[in-house]
Simulated assay, not measured.
Amino acid sequence: MIHYKTDEQLIAIRRTGRIVSACHREIAARIKPGVTTLEINKFADAFMRKHGARPAQIGYKGYPFATCASVGDVVCHGFPSAVPLKEGQIVTIDMVAELNGWMADSAWTYAVGKVSLEVERLMKATKQALYRGIAHAVEGKRLGDVGYAVQQIADREGYSVVEEFIGHGIGRRMHEDPQVFHRGKPGTGKWLRKGMVITIEPIFVLGDPHVRIDNDGWTARTVDGTWGAQYEHTVAVRDGEPIILTR
């Protein structure tokens, strides 16, 4: 069941989204060689609480951390680690905050120092695909239009899309209807209507898009060890330009 949000509820989600985006800005300044993702997790946890929000990922289906921290071939749901980040790596930090009962979700891939041109190009294409998908998240479009917009960038640039992990509705709960796929056919799928709030969160990889899950039950990494990047925003569907609630 899709929950359509009122203007007042969108304002509430936007307040949460501002905390998430502000936290990401602070994290961007802290990512560097020698820093650990456990340190980043501790910072994000304290930042959200300082601003009155709850780190919503803690306890979700048993997940123990405030953030997911995915390095290199880990494409999502990686556990924060005490292993120092190294020059040339990439790390995706994903977080969900809850403020006054409303949630917002955003993930961002960060370069650790200077990365290779190949990895830089991967990051740029994935981010471009996120915003191309967002541009189609408007009243009267369909979810297949969003997925197709993302897929076009991947196909054009020669990347694979990880299909096991998708976007979703969000609001009072972390995961609501509808499911948001990052591949699709134009003019297919559920209609996008004003008041829907969804996440768009493509993952592009350099090689095989299939993943395996580590023994912790969470960490998803590519089967061939190649690296992946992910960018995610929480977006409100409107009649006209969509609103990015985690900008």
Rank of each mutant, 00 (worst) to 15 (best):
E176K: 02
V180S: 04
G184E: 00
H136G: 10
I170M: 05
W191R: 08
R121N: 01
K141H: 13
K124A: 10
R156C: 07
V138S: 10
W191H: 09
G187D: 03
H175M: 14
A129M: 13
L122E: 05
H136M: 09
I203A: 08
M174P: 02
G144Y: 06
R156E: 15
V146G: 11
H168T: 02
Q152L: 06
P209H: 02
E201A: 03
G169I: 10
E157M: 08
I166G: 01
I134V: 13
I198E: 00
R173Y: 14
D145R: 05
R121C: 05
G140C: 04
D208A: 01
G195T: 11
M196V: 08
K185M: 14
V146L: 15
K124E: 15
P209L: 00
V150H: 05
V197N: 13
G184C: 03
V180M: 12
Q152A: 15
K190I: 13
V197G: 10
E163T: 08
K141R: 15
L192F: 15
D177L: 13
R183N: 07
V197Y: 09
M174G: 09
I200C: 01
G195Q: 04
L130T: 04
L130G: 01
H182T: 05
L206E: 09
I166D: 00
H175K: 14
V161A: 07
R132C: 10
I170E: 03
G140K: 12
Y159F: 14
I166N: 07
G187M: 07
Q152D: 11
V138C: 09
E201H: 02
V211P: 06
F204E: 00
L206N: 12
R142S: 13
I153D: 06
K190R: 11
H210C: 12
L192D: 14
K185C: 08
I170Y: 03
P202K: 04
R156H: 13
V211M: 03
A129N: 11
A137T: 05
I198R: 02
Y159G: 05
G195I: 04
R193E: 12
A154W: 01
I198G: 00
G167D: 03
V205A: 06
Q179W: 14
P209K: 01
I166S: 08
R142M: 08
W191P: 09
L130A: 05
Q152S: 12
P209M: 06
I134G: 07
G147Q: 05
H136C: 15
I198K: 06
R121H: 04
H210F: 15
S160K: 04
Q152F: 02
V150N: 01
H175C: 15
E201G: 03
K127T: 13
Y148V: 00
M174F: 11
H168R: 07
I198D: 06
Q179T: 04
